[in-house]
Simulated scan of single mutants.
Amino acid sequence: MSHNRFLLLMRTIRFDDINSRSERSKYDNIAPTRELFESFIAKCRANYQVGENVTIDEMLESFRERCKFRMYIANKPVKYGIKVYALCDSKNFYTSILEIYPGKQPNGAHKYDNTASAVGKRLSQDTLNTGRTITADNYFTSIPLADEMTLRKNNREIPPFFLDIKQRPKPSSIFGFHKSKVLVSYVQNKKNKKNVLMISTLHNDDQIDPTTRTNAKPEIITFL
């Protein structure tokens, strides 16, 4: 196929009924691609069952055209684009569920909570209570969301002494236990002063991974 032929097809191909789009757009910011996108996700969910370890994360898909929910995020490699949340298999990176961040939706069937907690619950609806482990980064900070996740340091549920690393030996780990949850604060060495905080409901001890040798990393951190 020639380049010009490809561009012609791109200009003329349509997956949406233009006659009803303006009416649907009154209630849905992503009305032009809603049907196609949801059909694709349904096929992803129906044709593969994710393994025992999955991840939830966000990404910015490059896009600079006109779009009311296009975002600018300065610290991303691609600074302009559309934010997409995803749940993927940790082993083979298969994408099971995607959700587009649509900005502030008009009142209607597609207006829903876009907080990190709510997004995490929607993405993990097929995974929770199935014995799988869900790992997420520090954007998703709610403890009930996943079996294992990284916490933000300003989370008010973290005891202050887990955050003070000035007087601590390096490397060192502090563990906190509460019912079915374990919180760990890990500092690696004097040169790397980063405080790694993670909480897990999969683990129930303070084991150190022997393969990390002098770094003495907790198994909660090296699990995946």
Rank of each mutant, 00 (worst) to 15 (best):
M71D: 10
M71C: 14
Y72A: 09
Y72Q: 11
Y72R: 11
Y72F: 15
I73L: 07
I73S: 02
I73M: 03
I73D: 00
I73A: 02
A74L: 11
A74T: 08
N75G: 05
N75T: 12
K76G: 07
P77C: 14
K79A: 08
K79Y: 10
Y80F: 15
Y80R: 10
G81N: 11
K83M: 11
K83V: 12
K83R: 15
K83L: 14
K83H: 07
V84Q: 06
V84K: 07
Y85N: 01
A86L: 10
L87E: 06
L87A: 06
C88W: 05
C88K: 00
C88E: 10
D89W: 04
D89I: 07
D89Y: 08
S90V: 06
K91D: 03
F93E: 05
Y94V: 07
Y94G: 05
Y94C: 09
T95D: 06
T95E: 13
T95W: 04
T95R: 13
T95M: 15
S96L: 08
S96A: 14
S96T: 08
L98M: 15
E99M: 15
E99I: 12
E99T: 04
I100N: 09
I100W: 02
I100L: 08
Y101L: 12
Y101P: 03
K104E: 05
K104W: 01
K104L: 06
Q105K: 09
P106W: 07
P106H: 04
N107A: 11
N107T: 06
N107K: 15
G108W: 09
G108F: 13
G108R: 10
G108Q: 11
A109G: 10
A109W: 13
A109R: 02
H110T: 03
H110V: 00
K111P: 00
K111R: 12
Y112F: 09
Y112Q: 09
Y112I: 00
Y112P: 01
Y112M: 08
D113I: 02
D113K: 00
D113M: 00
N114Y: 00
T115F: 00
T115Y: 06
T115Q: 03
T115A: 08
T115K: 05
A116Q: 02
A116C: 05
A116F: 02
A116W: 00
S117N: 03
A118P: 00
V119W: 02
V119R: 01
V119S: 01
G120V: 11
G120F: 05
